[in-house]
Design a protein around this nucleic acid. Sequence first.
DNA 1: TTGAAAGCGCTAACAT
DNA 2: ATGTTAGCGCTTTCAA
Lengths: 339, 339
Amino acid sequence: MTTENVYKNISLKKVAEKAGVSIATVSRVINNSPNVNPETRIKIEKIIKDLKYTPNRVAKRLRNRSSSGSLLGVLIPDIQNPFYVEVLRGIEDVAYKNKYALIMCNFAQDENKEKLYLDILQSESIDGLIAAPTHEHDQKVTNLVKAGLPIVCVDRGLVDVDVDVVLVENRKGAFTAVDYLAKKGYKRIAYISGIPKLPSSRDRELGFRDALEANKLSVFTELIKYGDSRHDSGVRLCAELLELPNPPDAIFAGNNLITLGALETIHKKGLKIPGEVAIIGFDDMYWSISLNPPLTAVRQPAYEIGKCAAEQLISRINNPGRPTSSMILKTELMIRNSC
Amino acid sequence: MTTENVYKNISLKKVAEKAGVSIATVSRVINNSPNVNPETRIKIEKIIKDLKYTPNRVAKRLRNRSSSGSLLGVLIPDIQNPFYVEVLRGIEDVAYKNKYALIMCNFAQDENKEKLYLDILQSESIDGLIAAPTHEHDQKVTNLVKAGLPIVCVDRGLVDVDVDVVLVENRKGAFTAVDYLAKKGYKRIAYISGIPKLPSSRDRELGFRDALEANKLSVFTELIKYGDSRHDSGVRLCAELLELPNPPDAIFAGNNLITLGALETIHKKGLKIPGEVAIIGFDDMYWSISLNPPLTAVRQPAYEIGKCAAEQLISRINNPGRPTSSMILKTELMIRNSC
DNA sequence: TTGAAAGCGCTAACAT
DNA sequence: ATGTTAGCGCTTTCAA
């Protein structure tokens, strides 16, 4: 330790000294308490400005876990997934407007990491949490909800407890996609699923099956592959599909990373899309139009999901008693040229 | 306020009571102080486990801004840019390993937002900061460095102060790309720049000019366009370029968002790549191979940038006196089919 | 309208 | 080896 870290903020005390009042009065000014003499207020406000005083958020949080405008936790499964990045953007915009800072935890689909982060979040005394839990029975998150921490779940709900949630119509969205495929005349339609224990993966599979049935198409079990929601598994499972003696003529990819992986495999094999194999994705990206070929995909309103979730959360923080709500957002089929 | 938030952690005091010792002893156990009776230690450790006690990070931070394993700030310009997402991943991995949590601030290229976030970060008593400042003279960040907050800059340095920095060889990387274009026989090569006040944009322009000169090609000023580093500006500036009476035969795009925007425009105009116009990008993406056509691009080791930055930062936190260092990472040309 | 003081959970200096 | 205590910066009762 050669250098002394002199980095230090102005405190209430400094302001109080300068103003010749007690710290309590300064605190009142800061918190807009009505019980303060207008003249005193003006004097103190000037000093605050001069000294560039900003309240110490750490002390505030230590004192009052209910104080507003402080810290929100975000627990997401995979920051490499552009879908969650968009969700994050939505959250961030709302948080910023409400002067909340975000503590970001990317647990990369790893349950141990999730647990550690949840501990950290808890011990940081966050005011609220937006989480996409590993699965519906996530104990840690469930306990946190029970303990009274304001929480909103995105993308995945919780089953053992009543919690605010914002989701999309996964089943219907998947149905729309696969129905579109069927109507186009594809007969052997495959599904590459994300992590099967996620409700979203299961709902999309349900939609997939609904659509096959509605179009009187057979479900070929060898054409349903279960992966882990990541790029690699898209690469691998798509290869397995294409190497089948009787490969699919169309693929419904369970999320955007899987789609990208599948695309990579198809290109490596030199197959024409949609001529030799068609593909449709769940999750749109703003650059889907620049893919080869421009990708037809089910768009989830990711930014809105984040925005709604953050709004819900802040509303719950301010009103812990209000009943929980589920928001189910609609998806949209973006038709381009990959099928 | 209908419901009471009963959410509350176990404190040192609780553990101490249960163990029949003072809080100081418990604190010593937690911090692995040598001065504690082995038997006492074991007893206390058991109780800690039973009670699932985790130290309150907020109190810790309030007490000691030098205590390790707490909070790191990350200030990035654009979370929509996959480059920064990769950087973030690198940071996050290192932070996680060292038990730091991350407070994430995306200022979206907005200087006011940057300022507000810097205030928040400061008042959160972060232990250190990784930042990509708006420009080289960024006052706020400069002052923070001067005040002694451990800081590492990524992607963009600071000029008025001595600070740790991790960058890539922008000039050389750009040279390699444009030289490749020239060697392929392209004559009218355009450059779509990101925000011109960023050193990285300027260095890439320098590399662009170097390569033209080295290949005895003219610099056409109408073929150099300055934008704002985002998707939109790629769309727009590429259109301007292609609508020129004498359009370019190849485009060097200043970053990945610009590349994606340019690609969008080229596709909308129905132009063949590379037949009618070639394109080469700065920044690779893991799905570049699935673009139309597979994109040739300069790869920045984004994950490593984040990793190095976080390691540098933690090293500086632990040893504030050590001299500053600059790490300059190499780029790599990923040759595919867009030129 | 204002001030004094307790206390949030923790660390570290000092005392025993 | 262990305990006592001050204090980090703040909010909030209670008293004046």
